[in-house]
Amino acid sequence: MAEPEDGTYLYAITRQLDPAELRGLRGVDGERPRLVEGSGLRAIVGTVDLARFRRPPDRDLGDVEDLRSLEALLRAHHRVVQAVAGTAAVVPLRLGTVYRDDGRVREVLDERRADFEQALSRVTGRTEWGVKVSATPEAFAGDSGVAGDARDPGDAAAEARPAPDAGASDRPGTEYLRRRREDERSRQEGWDRAAAFAEEVHAALAGVAVESRRHSPQDPRLSGQAGWMLLNGAYLVDHGREAGLVAVVDRFDDPDGGVRVELTGPWAPYSFTEAEGGAEEGGHR
């Protein structure tokens, strides 16, 4: 059956890195990350036991132990990538990229050198930052205290809404339906205002950034945040322009008004290393 078998786990690619920067780090299999050099590039790799990563195909990721080890894997991968990103321009590889041995890694460095160089140029001198915008539904309900500059022309429609009709209470059923429709409409309007707000924040952040990208809103069950997640953005920002980013965040952040704008990072440029033009599925050559 399966005998112990090593593989080379690939974390990231960089141009230059002092091996001393890897000292003290532990990788996804508890191993000490190291460098493989070739074609003018350096790959940050680790020797891993393949058996540890291969799951029998008939087993589901159902039990908590598996899931915990999955989180450990994510965090270990991130720790290595992030440590390197703190000292050099780096292109993170997709989680779980593993080769038979170092020789194969060198071949890949050679075969894909142009792609890696291009990806490195894209992120050199830049850092990824994350900005998450969330709000309580009340923050955008009606005309009261909306945060920042997020005024939206939709308010005119809200003002044109007919005043409650005192006579309607003669017919409770009709009144109920009318109110429900009204609630739905004002909820929709609140949502529209919130969405417009998110667009405005994103545009302001994108104005500071070299590149930007929106991740899907986070599942509240994962984020633990109640309310609406309006924006889950990633921004690639030139070094030295961080203050501009922070200024935008501060301008829109309004905890008292129920709007939270949160900055995360610095991140290795995870969100900006996908090959452009959809080449990422390997159809590039």
């Binding site: 593989g7 690939l10 690619i13 393949l50 990563f53 291969r54 989180e71 994510l74 965090r75 991968h77 991130h78 292109v91 993170p92 590889l93 997709r94 989680l95 779980g96 990229t97 593993v98 080769y99 038979r100 194969r104 890949v108 894909r112 792609d115 890696f116 990806a119 994350g130 998450k132 991740h215 899907s216 986070q218 599942d219 994962l222 984020s223 633990g224 889950n232 990633a234 995360t264 991140w267 995870y270 969100s271 290393t273 996908e274 090959a275 990422e280 599925e281 390997g282």
Partner: peptide, 19 residues
Amino acid sequence: LVDLLDRLLAKGVVVAGEV
């Protein structure tokens, strides 16, 4: 963890690993 997921499970640079 949720922020990590957004990034680590995004595609990233994809080269075909052998395993």
